[in-house]
């Protein structure tokens, strides 16, 4: 297991998480180097979404530490963590269904006060996600899944984050949209945003990630560079949905 290197932007160290009596994470340690895409792989109920919630402060670990840019996040509330520069694309997107697409995207800039720059960023989003242009005044709940994913990503970018965490961004999307989303993640990353993403589909994730971790019932069982893992026979194990990867 890699120890968190000094240039890690985000680091979880020996995190143990419980829901009531049930332990979900066992000494979880993950680090996201500045500027990298790091992927957390794992089967159903392995504790992936809970990892996202730990980072965002929605769930607090019983022990261990979570640091962002060297400072611990544990004492902070979710809004405070967001203000530190972490944006999120939650599981199942979680748009504000009854608000318009425009309002949803602008909600992403909630932590900012620079009106003009926000307006410019909105324009930028429309070049990055051209399809959303015609949909701006539509109810977000009425969009297709792929379009909703675009809105969720635009919304996350609007806070000008240093890091984005994404929970299964390709889930339930058509192959066309899956490619589009992966490409966008690369683009976002190239512009300097670090990415931490959760995926069930190993072959997809390993295509774009720099590093990856494999989570199995709350324990990291495998980690390393994406290139090395791609060739690792263990990655084709059943818990990763190996049939697709094969």
């Amino acid at each position: 297991m890699t120890n968190s290197p000094p240039d890690a932007l985000l680091a979880l160290t020996n995190v143990n998480t419980f829901y009531g009596q049930a332990q979900v994470h066992f000494d979880l340690s993950i680090s996201v180097p500045r500027g990298h895409i790091v992927c957390l792989l794992g089967g159903n109920a392995s504790g992936k979404s809970t990892t996202m919630k730990i980072i965002l402060g929605l769930v607090k670990p019983r022990s261990g530490d979570v640091t962002f840019d060297g400072a611990s996040l544990l004492g902070l509330t979710t809004p405070q963590i967001v203000r530190r520069g972490i944006a999120s694309v939650p599981e199942a997107r979680r748009l504000f269904a009854d608000m318009t697409v425009r309002e949803n995207i602008l909600m992403g800039a909630f932590v900012r006060d620079d009106r003009e720059a926000i307006a410019q960023d909105l324009d930028k989003m429309l070049t990055l996600f051209p399809k959303l242009g015609q949909r701006l005044s539509q109810r977000a709940g009425s969009l297709s899944g792929g379009e909703q994913q675009m809105v969720a990503m635009a919304r996350a970018l609007m806070s000008r984050p240093r890091m984005i965490v994404m929970d299964e961004p390709t889930m339930g999307l058509s192959p066309l949209y899956v490619d589009r989303v992966l490409e966008l993640i690369r683009t976002i990353n190239r512009e300097g945003v670090s990415v931490f993403m959760v995926e069930q589909n190993a072959s997809l994730a390993l295509e774009i990630a720099h590093e990856a971790y494999v989570l199995q019932t709350g324990k990291i069982v495998l980690s390393g560079s994406a290139r090395a893992l791609k060739d690792d026979p263990r990655i084709r194990d059943a818990y990763l949905g190996g049939s697709e990867a094969a």
């Binding site: 929605l58 504000f96 992403g108 932590v111 806070s159």
Partner: peptide, 9 residues
């Protein structure tokens, strides 16, 4: 969506 709102800050 309370949780999502919190994640917007």
């Amino acid at each position: 969506d309370r949780d999502a709102a919190m994640q917007m800050g």
